[in-house]
């Protein structure tokens, strides 16, 4: 059975069909790309899949469970985590605490146990710290564990966002332009990290990206969106040669 199944998903804002008739099937372990010119509706697809917007038509399933109309927090608990195009970190929390917020639903103790420092507080916090440091290690952030998130350099902020998303133990990870603002070296490093994370945490990854090097480098398959509709779909190298796609990106 497919991990993610999106059927005829669409949303209209007023009279505008921001996304129309969007279909997608992801198998477990896929590394899938979603590309398209500016304003094509890529981030809107992410917002639909994470419950930020409610779809006007269609529906989607994760592992066979219908998630249409659920709240963002519920969708995360069901197994979809995301990053944001414009970075959204918890700026006044430390890097470590950012990841620990991601562990919120994975490792629990009650508010009461937290206030009165009962044994479970100490044992769970210890586990949380260990797990968070493990994740920070993957992203080369362990040295910055005590830094405030807002004081991190840009590239590391992007990585921290991914680390925080992975902390929620998702089945499906949505990355919204992870390489935006990175230099070629950082992008290359990021590509390796995404590969590593996919294999190591048994994730399925759906990524929006403008950087064609990254798309060609890591995505096995892609969908091209234009004006909210699907323009092309298939193996990355075939799609990128498609004259329609080239036309959409470069004009005639």
């Amino acid at each position: 059975m497919a991990l993610l199944e999106v059927k005829n998903l669409g949303i209209t804002f007023g009279g505008l069909h921001a996304v129309d008739n969007f279909n997608l099937t992801l198998e477990k372990g896929d590394l899938y790309g979603l590309i398209g010119p500016n304003g094509a509706g890529k981030t809107t697809v992410f917002n639909l899949l994470t419950g930020v917007y409610k779809p006007t038509t269609g529906t989607f399933y994760l592992d066979g469970h219908e998630l249409k109309g659920k709240k963002p927090a519920e969708i995360n608990k069901a197994g979809i985590a995301r990053t944001f195009q414009n970075i959204r970190l918890f700026k006044n929390l430390s890097v470590l605490d950012n990841v620990k917020v991601g562990l919120h639903n994975e490792m629990k103790y009650s508010t009461f146990e937290g206030i009165f420092r009962l044994p479970r507080y100490f044992s769970t916090e210890k586990k949380m710290n260990a797990r968070a440091m493990e994740l920070l290690d993957v992203f080369d952030l362990s040295e910055n564990a005590d830094t405030l998130a807002s004081n991190l350099p840009y590239g590391k902020q992007r990585k921290l966002e991914i680390a925080r998303a992975i902390a929620t133990q998702p089945k499906l990870l949505l990355l919204d332009e992870p390489a935006a603002g990175m230099n070629p070296n950082e992008t290359k490093e990021l590509m390796e990290t995404i590969h590593f994370v996919r294999d190591n945490f048994e994730l399925t990854v759906l990524v929006i990206e403008h950087d064609m090097n990254l798309v060609a480098g890591i995505c096995e398959q892609i969908t091209v969106l234009n004006f909210g509709t699907e323009l092309a779909k298939g193996k990355t190298e075939d799609v990128l040669k498609n004259p329609e796609v080239i036309k959409a990106y470069l004009g005639e």
Partner: peptide
């Protein structure tokens, strides 16, 4: 931490299941 994450960024807090 959950409370402060809501203060710092409500949308991101929701996206990690809070």
């Amino acid at each position: 931490r959950a409370i402060m994450s809501i203060r710092d960024n409500r949308i991101a807090a929701e996206s990690v299941g809070i």
